[in-house]
Amino acid sequence: MNILPVIIAAAIVGGVGIIIGFFLGFSSEKFKVEVDPREESILEILPGNNCGGCGYAGCSGLAAAIVKGEAPVNGCPVGGAAVGNKVGEIMGVAAEEGVRQAAFVKCGGTCEKAKQDYQYTGVEDCAALSFVPNGGAKSCSYGCLGFGNCVKSCPFDAIHIVDGIARVDKEACKACGKCVAACPKGLIELLPYDAEHIVQCSSKDMGKNVMKACTAGCIGCRLCEKNCAFDAVHVVDNIAYIDQSKCTKCGVCAQKCPKKIIV
């Protein structure tokens, strides 16, 4: 076998490669873009999921915005205080104490508690289901549909369908807000991580109709509102809402609730 052509071929391709390498090396020096070194080090600290929870197009967008001063150092909802402090060190500012948040699903209508009007056998997608009569098979038109659009949207595997309704794993939740946007019923809300008392219902129906549809529904009886000593609970549109900034976690509302849906 004649080895010469092989060597020639290797030499030519290698030679062209070396010339190109020199050319590119030279031009990369010549066309160097001055990137703020802080931007790169911030980017290293950020989680790198590119989830977009901060409102920027990926982690690099947030890093650039932090360096420019357009975003707060704790702008990353996923990294929370830990990342915020590290970024703050780089930027030379103390991170404002951000409250860790988590997503909560405001529905307690599990398979046995919530009644169904009919059997649904169509596409398994919450958004599609919200177009069928009465917004899904559940008698309650406000309740969780249980087909898990939130589960699909979660980049952190923190939300799951348990017993027919979505449940959030508080430890795994990074409060990026994807599930909030994914739920066609608007059942998911970002609340402080340590919130203890949340109304597990979103039904705005009259108490009588709620009772018919679900045993875990808020009937708007106002017992919680009347018994709260801190003006934290209010019933608006037949549904109780707890203002977490006023709640002192005393637990009176949970005790008084006849439906036991404040947990």
Binding site: V16, G17, I20, F23, L24, F31, K32, V33
Partner: peptide, 16 residues
């Protein structure tokens, strides 16, 4: 090889 190198070059040029 040549094309890849040229694209790299254009990229650097545009970035700058």
């Amino acid at each position: 090889l040549v094309i890849a190198a040229l694209v790299q070059f254009v990229e650097m040029f545009l970035k700058k």
